[in-house]
């Protein structure tokens, strides 16, 4: 498996905005067809059973519909927002006490009128991040791949890569710093 994220051809951020503005079912169907199968794969990778993954993928997309007004295209790309919803639903599903936090609490309300410039800037940040993920040095891309979407113990990651755990951490640190720089929120002085 290589990290080669396809640049999305459809403007999914605009689809979410269309759902918020006019309950656009066509936009929802487009989002669903693209994201629901990938969200299900993600949940399976986290160790969810097929039936739970299917149900949480449904719930993720229902949440996209219901909370679309909370989506701020100036702050996050569509895939990041949907990823966050799926991740939080998965965390909630592990509770035994049913004290489920209302998801609205974790999704902050957007600025009332995002400026077109801010949306463009967010779009460019995401494009730069996407490019930076693709361009990570192979040894850094490898630790990102192993740290994400594979439910393995730290020692197992270290064994699978054939490098000490300390090296796993330091490569991950290098990758994080590189990606932060790509997103433009880090100057060299801030590096850990």
């Amino acid at each position: 498996m290589t990290i080669a994220p396809a640049v999305p051809e459809v403007d999914y951020a605009a689809s979410i905005v269309a759902i918020a503005a006019r309950h656009d079912r066509t936009a929802f169907a487009a989002l669903f067809s693209h994201f629901a199968p990938r969200v299900k794969t993600y949940l399976l990778r986290l160790g969810a059973s097929p039936s739970l993954a299917e149900e949480l993928a449904q719930e993720t997309m229902l949440t996209v519909w219901r909370k679309a007004a909370l989506y701020d295209p100036a702050r996050a790309g569509a895939s990041t927002w949907i990823f966050t919803i799926a991740r939080n639903l998965r965390l909630d599903s592990a509770r035994s006490d049913k004290r489920r936090k209302a998801l609205g609490d974790t999704l902050e309300a957007p600025d009332p009128e995002p400026e077109p410039d801010a949306i463009l800037a967010a779009d460019q940040r995401e494009t730069r991040l996407r490019a930076a993920v693709v361009e990570l040095p192979p040894e850094q891309a490898e630790v990102i791949r192993h740290a994400f979407f594979q439910d393995k113990a730290h020692a197992q990651i270290s064994a699978d890569l054939g490098i000490p755990l300390g090296t796993v951490k330091s490569r991950l640190r290098l990758a994080i710093n590189r990606l932060r720089q790509a997103m433009g929120d880090l100057t060299l002085g801030d590096l850990k």
């Binding site: 994220p5 794969t41 990041t80 995401e126 979407f149």
Partner: peptide
Amino acid sequence: TATGGVLLEDLPPA
């Protein structure tokens, strides 16, 4: 988290 969003796009659809 943003990287998670990028990688989500890259996952094979189930």
